[in-house]
Amino acid sequence: MSDHFSEEDVQREVTELEQKSATAARIFDLRRIIGGLFVLYGVIVTITGLTDGQAAIDKAEGININLWTGIGMLLLGVFFLVWLRLRPVAPPTEAGMGDERPPSD
């Protein structure tokens, strides 16, 4: 039995791999990971700041440091997620998929 692939089979396989690569690039975009973690931790720290007693606030010289830090983390996380939404990862182009050889003069 011969393992002979037609040009159409090869092209279909290349297209599938390009789609998987673009999907993986979107899923593992660092902006998504960083933004998600900052939002998650920001929510936790903000809730801690909202429930802090007066003793914790006095310990930080009258500043509810957990509340302000949590709000800052939330804002930073939202910034990363909005940035991801406004400037998504571009799918790879055919020009970027070819040889990495410099052009000959």
Rank of each mutant, 00 (worst) to 15 (best):
M1E: 11
S2M: 08
H4N: 13
H4T: 15
S6F: 06
S6L: 10
E7I: 07
E7H: 15
E8F: 03
D9G: 04
Q11E: 12
R12P: 01
R12T: 06
E13S: 15
E13A: 13
E13C: 07
V14W: 06
E16G: 00
E16F: 02
E16N: 09
E18I: 10
K20A: 13
K20P: 01
S21A: 10
S21Q: 10
S21D: 12
R26Q: 11
F28W: 12
L30Y: 01
L30F: 09
R31K: 09
R32M: 11
R32Q: 09
I34E: 03
I34S: 04
I34Q: 04
G35C: 11
L37D: 03
F38E: 09
F38H: 06
V39K: 02
V39H: 05
V39L: 10
Y41D: 02
V43L: 15
V43C: 09
I44V: 14
V45N: 08
I47S: 15
T48F: 03
G49S: 09
G53D: 13
G53N: 11
Q54S: 14
A55G: 04
A55P: 00
A56F: 02
A56I: 02
A56C: 01
I57M: 07
D58V: 02
D58N: 15
D58S: 15
D58Y: 05
D58K: 11
A60V: 03
G62Q: 12
I63K: 08
I63L: 15
I63Q: 11
N64I: 07
N66D: 11
L67H: 07
L67E: 09
L67F: 15
T69P: 00
M73K: 05
L75F: 14
L76W: 15
V78M: 11
F79G: 04
F80P: 14
L81H: 06
L84R: 13
R85I: 00
R85Q: 06
L86I: 06
R87T: 14
P88T: 08
V89G: 04
A90C: 00
A90V: 05
A90Y: 00
A90R: 13
P91M: 02
P91C: 01
T93P: 03
T93V: 01
M97D: 07
M97K: 14
M97R: 13
M97P: 00
G98W: 03
R101M: 07
R101Q: 10
P102Y: 11
P103A: 08
P103R: 13
D105W: 05
D105C: 01
